[in-house]
Design a protein around this nucleic acid. Structure first.
Lengths: 343, 343
DNA sequence: CTTATGGAGGAAAACGATTTCCCTTATGCT
DNA sequence: AGCATAAGGGAAATCGTTTTCCTCCATAAG
């Protein structure tokens, strides 16, 4: 109702706790205690006066003051490997929401899967006294080793800690998911060859997905030789899929069913197939991993293992909270789902 | 070469400036000055001792201390409307890179185009003493009005400040871009009707794009009545495109060329057309806006106005720097480009 | 020989919050 | 009455920096 903005009247400086204390006629200690809901430290009458002053001045505590004193800020760093991947963006959005609900503030970064950039951000998060760090697909790096050794709260999402598989982790059971794809295809037709397109297999997620897929096929009698693997160069999964698909096309018998260890790899493969005049999924069926939200709209030709990124947030925060409050290391597995499209 | 991590030996507390000072045998003031490169305040010999101590202890200044003293942190808040849109994710990535080069730290948030969430983040950025705030597609909100009135450094990207068109802005010339699409289509065939699918037109970007498109058509003799507009409900551009396309399909004559004011709207329209058994672009041609990086891989049926998000970063930072250093309000227009696909 | 001048560096005061000691007062119990 | 206890609240220390004074010393100019 009052159109006058108190913050402007207060001058260039933002309203500080001492201004509130002065206006309420109490000490800054009392204001602090009321703001933080400390019990038995203020009569309801005093608290009301403080709240009135806070409202009148539009006071909001500055995070830096608190962070300095407590040697800990409310920031939680989220280091994502590639925000250009809609699946990761979805995961980040979900995590952000959950963090905010829990009273944290997300600082989101894109590491481009570069150890140097990851280290840069890890150091920056330390400098900001971040409460914890969430690594949405981590790469090995010296800084990561340092923080792990120092016992800082780290939560790994989607890809396990490359330095210690026992670190807190949130993700799906990659082996089971790979296996499920194999079973799904075998239920249709047991004849190979099958294709497997992957990026670097030096990380846990890819390894497990591939291993599960192969294990699933082999368990049902498919020969190892009937599983053709290919990859590409560089960091872009799109380019890797494109290049890897080129390699598969050069095989004596081109696989008619190809598992791509990420949606982006599948996109690359799709383009390569289109360039070769082949139709997806009529000539070649592709199976992706992630099932990012756009697939339903523009990739009706792509089946995929759906990773429930939308639901990651609460689980990540719960895992982080367990680490912070009780020092307990938790690993949470979420359920995947096969989304079958096309045909 | 030394495997012993100095930070662990220092105990739980991170290395502080006083530890460095002690080790170097100087005062903390001198350490601070050396770290900040203050001239004429230390002999090269003293500076060398300080640097040696910094290296030995692995010291990195804590941002909170500095922020508290200077009443300003190195954080720049980037509030994006929707990170699920790959175009925005690309813009955010570019901005992040440029900010880092300039010595800032990005804190990225997703406002979901909700005024309440945007305000929440604006307030949080204030509490963090953010150096500036970049709004990657802003919505009107009380908090935004407050910050603008307080003269805080705000840079608007892609969509102008809904409260003041004169605020610093980085984006393309939307009117010219809309006009360019019209001319492109008229050069092929002047017969209508034409379609226009849009989300809310209460914001500058959409308004200008639509106005430019219509102006371009009308200027070449197309009747206003031959331009069919449609939209949908809700916030999701995907759903809006889907629903709006449904409306256009109900028209007496279905437009064979439809401009969608964002790629996501085009995706929604694509799905609706596919559901109706129509082929894109054979039966209906779609033109999008943004041309997000995935289009080249999986949307070969979509022509689009390419907005050079990859190049936004340096321009945004330059605009922000002009605002911070010289208090100068700049508006930067980047060149768009028509990307023609399919057919 | 005095007196500016400027380089080198230390002591201490901020910055805005939280938190630890205190001190006062009121209440309940013997 | 005497005393323990607890509630209510203030003064001041503290967190890690930056920055303002200030001092000391060497050199150059007069």
């Amino acid at each position: 109702m009052n159109e006058h903005d108190p913050r402007k009247a207060a001058g260039a400086r933002p309203v500080s706790i001492s201004a509130v204390a002065r206006r309420a006629g109490v000490s800054i200690a009392t204001v602090s205690r009321v703001m933080n809901g400390v019990e038995n430290k203020a009569t309801s009458e005093t608290a009301a006066r403080v709240h009135a002053a806070v409202a009148a001045l539009g006071y909001r505590p500055q995070s830096v003051g608190r962070a300095l004193r407590q040697r800990e800020s409310r920031i939680v760093g989220v280091l994502a490997a590639n925000l250009g991947n809609p699946a990761m963006a979805a995961a980040a959005a979900s995590i952000e929401l959950a963090l905010r609900d829990a009273g944290f503030v997300m600082a989101l970064c894109d590491t481009h899967e570069e150890p140097a950039i990851q280290d840069e951000y890890l150091a920056e998060m330390e400098a900001q006294l971040a409460r914890g760090i969430v690594l949405l697909v981590a790469v090995p790096s010296p800084g990561l080793d340092r923080l792990r050794a120092a016992g800082r709260p780290l939560v790994f999402v989607n890809r396990r800690d490359p330095g210690d598989e026992a670190s807190p982790f949130v993700g799906i059971d990659d082996h089971a998911a790979g296996c499920a794809v194999a079973r799904h295809w075998l239920a249709q037709d047991k004849r190979g060859p099958f294709g497997l397109l992957h990026a670097s297999l030096s990380f846990s997620a890819g390894q497990r997905r591939a291993a599960g897929f192969v294990a699933g096929l082999v368990a049902d009698g498919v020969a190892e030789a009937a599983i053709l693997r290919a990859t590409g160069t560089g960091k872009s999964h799109l380019a890797i899929g494109h290049e890897g698909m080129g390699a598969l096309l050069a095989a004596p018998i081109v696989p008619r069913r190809i598992l791509c260890l990420s949606d982006l790899i599948a996109y690359g493969a799709y383009r390569r197939l289109t360039e070769a005049g082949l139709s997806v999924p009529r000539d070649v069926a592709l199976f992706g991993f992630d099932d990012n939200p756009l697939n339903a709209w523009i990739a009706p030709w792509l089946s995929a293992v759906r990773i429930p990124y939308d639901g990651f947030g609460p689980v990540v925060v719960k895992t982080l909270a367990a680490l912070l409050d009780k020092g307990r290391v938790e690993t949470a597995f979420l359920d995947h789902e096969l989304v079958i499209r096309g045909g």
